[in-house]
């Protein structure tokens, strides 16, 4: 029965939510809403497909609806020049700095980076989970990583990225 699988996935969902939204209480609220919505829409899950990936899709939708409801929709333009970085005090890779820098990424880039780097999803899986083309996954991943690097190490670290294709 799937209840046991849902329970087993809680730690993964919590960790991802924590990295996605930052604070513990909102992250757990997001996980709870995700699980409740998943049960309410369980008939939409296709038997034989990856339950974990589906739960991440549900979480993505719940989080997007929430952001919409809170009117904090990200107006981020993927092609805007990357300016105004807040350099870290030193170049050390401090986890606290990383957490702060991660929060500064546009949510679209954060999601892709976390699904790939934290959840070990293939690019194809990440694209399917978020319902976006794989090219978009690649450009968000590439920009997210570079932006994070600059936030952590200062603008002198910036390089011109190669084109994705």
């Amino acid at each position: 029965m799937h209840a046991a699988e849902f329970v087993a996935l809680i730690p993964r969902l919590r960790r991802y939510a924590r990295a996605l939204v930052g604070d513990r209480a909102s992250a757990d609220d997001l996980v709870q809403d995700t699980l409740e919505r998943a049960w309410a829409r369980f008939h939409l899950w296709q038997r034989g497909t990856d339950l974990r990936a589906w739960l991440f899709t549900v979480m993505h939708n719940v989080n997007a609806n929430r952001a919409r409801a809170l009117r904090v929709h990200s107006e981020f333009d993927e092609d805007a020049p990357e300016a105004q970085f807040r350099p870290a005090e030193n170049g050390l890779l401090e986890l606290r700095d990383l957490e702060r820098a991660l929060a500064d990424l546009p949510v679209e880039q954060r999601e892709v980076l976390l699904l790939v780097a934290l959840e070990d999803m293939s690019y194809t899986e990440a694209a399917a989970t978020l319902g976006i083309p794989i090219g978009t996954v690649m450009s968000r991943l590439s920009r997210g990583r570079e932006r994070l690097r600059v936030l952590m190490h200062g603008p002198q670290a910036a390089v011109r990225l190669k084109r994705v294709k």
């Binding site: 996935l9 730690p11 919590r14 757990d28 709870q32 699980l35 990383l98």
Partner: peptide, 18 residues
């Protein structure tokens, strides 16, 4: 970064939701 979250027992409300 949040490796500790993986090791924590999940809160009861999340287990119930699951």
């Amino acid at each position: 970064l949040h490796a500790d979250v993986l090791a924590e027992p999940p809160p009861a409300r999340l287990v119930h939701a699951a």
